[in-house]
């Protein structure tokens, strides 16, 4: 091992990505808590917290670019850096979707007592597990965990379809209920997109280790 500087910088990038991932997870948890409790103030915290996550992405990007410019990584080292750039982008998008959920809570005030709520929370639990596993896969270089994201994504998609069916079967007898149904449909959609970004992280993990491009979505 003669590349201590490069190895140390790669380890830093990994640590920073992990920290960013934890922030994204906590943004989602907070957005869901605000939804469950109808708590606009808490939702606002998610919106405000997004700038910090964006900053983390830019810092990570800077580090990766500096590393490429100064260390000229190749082969697996290079794959680690390019995958880190991509994963940072995926995490940032996930954080934006958590913000979208929080904004829906603030603007449309979806009722915590709505009958679709348990399904939304079930789906959210699956998506949260996907984010957790994507991070585990990345940090522990765990290919099985990465590939398992495809299974979880199917589960999230199945729950999403169920939610839509339930919402569209409602009778549109008043304007307020239509707005409610729309809000939940969007929230389901945001969660579904988050799951897709988590599978992209898994694809990045597989690429780092094998150079292979697979589709987990």
């Amino acid at each position: 091992m003669q590349r201590n500087v490069l190895d140390a910088q790669l380890a830093d990038i990994k640590q920073q990505l992990q920290a960013m991932g934890e922030q994204v997870r906590s943004a989602l948890q907070q957005a869901l808590a605000s939804l469950q409790q109808g708590d606009a103030a808490q939702a606002r915290q998610v919106v405000d917290g997004d700038a910090g996550i964006n900053r983390m992405e830019h810092e990570l990007e800077e580090r990766c670019i500096r590393l490429i410019a100064t260390q000229q990584p190749v082969a697996k080292d290079l794959r680690k850096v390019t995958a880190a750039l991509r994963i940072a982008g995926e995490l940032e998008r996930m954080a934006d979707l958590a913000v979208d959920i929080a904004r829906a809570v603030i603007r449309q005030q979806p009722s915590p007592a709505d009958p679709v709520m348990p399904d939304i929370l079930r789906m959210a639990a699956v998506v949260e597990e996907m984010i957790r596993q994507a991070l585990v896969a990345y940090v522990n270089e765990d290919l099985a965990a990465a590939r398992n994201l495809a299974v979880l994504d199917d589960e999230a998609d199945r729950l999403y379809r169920g939610i839509l069916e339930e919402l569209f079967s409602r009778r549109p007898d008043d304007q307020g209920r239509i707005a409610q149904a729309m809000a939940f449909a969007f929230i389901g959609r945001y969660l579904e997109r988050m799951g897709d970004h988590a599978t992209n992280v898994g694809e990045g993990v597989v690429y780092i280790h094998s150079g292979e491009r697979i589709d987990l979505n």
Partner: peptide
């Protein structure tokens, strides 16, 4: 330079 087959090639091109 991106995905060598042999571990020794990988170690050499990545400067190890």
């Amino acid at each position: 330079f991106t995905k060598p087959d042999d571990k020794r090639t990988e170690d050499y091109v990545s400067g190890r």
